[in-house]
Design a protein around this nucleic acid. Structure first.
Length: 266
DNA sequence: ATGGTAGCGATGCTA
């Protein structure tokens, strides 16, 4: 079972890149964030043609938006409106593998704006509240019980080597101590396994995102690990492979995020 | 310390 998460930054604009990725890597399931279109505008027929006819979509006009595309039938499990903000930032579905259901939660956590102070920046306050709700939801609803994957653009790089410079980014939204603490509490509440770090030690750099604003993103290599795949305790032993497709960041008119994939033996 | 780019959709907001 191969599962990819990718912040696509407009699914309509980048459908050719999605097609290129699906044809070359053929994941069973693709989780997308920042689709940036209403459900009626989602390029469903393109996904059907590519062999991904099963879709669970939660979109909105212009901003945010998440989707799950699958080769295998999906059982929709709905979308939670975190913080009652009316944003499309979560979608869940179940896919059957070998007769056993595998539950998928696809997240797009708020980026949080520029100023890391909840008193003066409502977007940062929203991000912190969103993370608190993720922890409470995980704890109170037993979200990580059974075969479950929580993945997506979590917009936080929690470890020192999830960013190009820990020291330089301590006051930069995505790597501040308060965000890291709240994300870690949500992670601990589920007993989740950090699937990507199972394959790359904490002492090694690992990024999934490189800013559009760099003159040469690859040469400067000032990346961050903003995209994550967490698996439930039950699935930890089933992890076999991980890949961050860095080369996709160098494709024509790319997303600023790279497709990030795990393989599970289930 | 600063400013740099991108998408949506029609002006500034979000990232």
């Amino acid at each position: 079972m191969k599962i990819t998460t990718w912040n696509i930054n407009s699914v309509r604009l980048r459908m050719p890149l999605v097609a290129r990725f699906l044809k070359s890597h053929s994941p069973d399931v693709l989780l997308l964030q920042e689709t940036k279109c209403r459900d009626a505008e989602f390029p469903a027929s393109d996904f059907r043609s590519l062999g991904y006819p099963h879709l669970a979509i939660n979109g909105q006009k212009g901003y945010h938006g998440v989707a799950i595309a699958s080769k295998h039938p999906l059982e929709p499990l709905g979308a939670r409106d975190f913080c009652k903000a009316g944003h499309a930032r979560h979608i869940a579905a179940e896919v059957k593998v070998g007769g056993e259901p595998l539950r998928l939660h696809n997240f797009y956590v708020p980026a949080g704006g520029d100023e890391p102070d909840r008193e003066i920046n409502p977007k940062f306050a929203h991000k912190l509240d969103f993370l608190d709700e993720m922890r409470e939801w995980t704890r109170d609803e037993g979200v990580s019980q059974g075969r479950v994957i929580l993945a997506g653009d979590l917009n936080i790089a929690p470890l020192e080597h999830d960013v190009w410079s820990h020291k330089a980014l301590l006051k930069v939204v995505s790597h501040t101590p308060i965000e890291v603490e709240k994300l870690t509490k949500a992670f601990d509440a589920g007993g989740w396994v950090d699937a990507l770090r199972r394959f790359v030690p904490a002492e090694e750099k690992l990024y999934t995102w490189w800013s559009y604003r760099a003159a040469d993103w690859s040469a400067s290599d000032r990346g961050r690990r903003l995209d994550h795949i967490w698996v439930s305790p039950t699935l930890g032993g089933a992890l076999r492979e991980m890949q961050v497709l860095r080369e996709a960041r160098g494709w024509e008119r790319p997303s600023d995020h790279a497709p990030t994939t795990i393989v599970l033996e289930v």
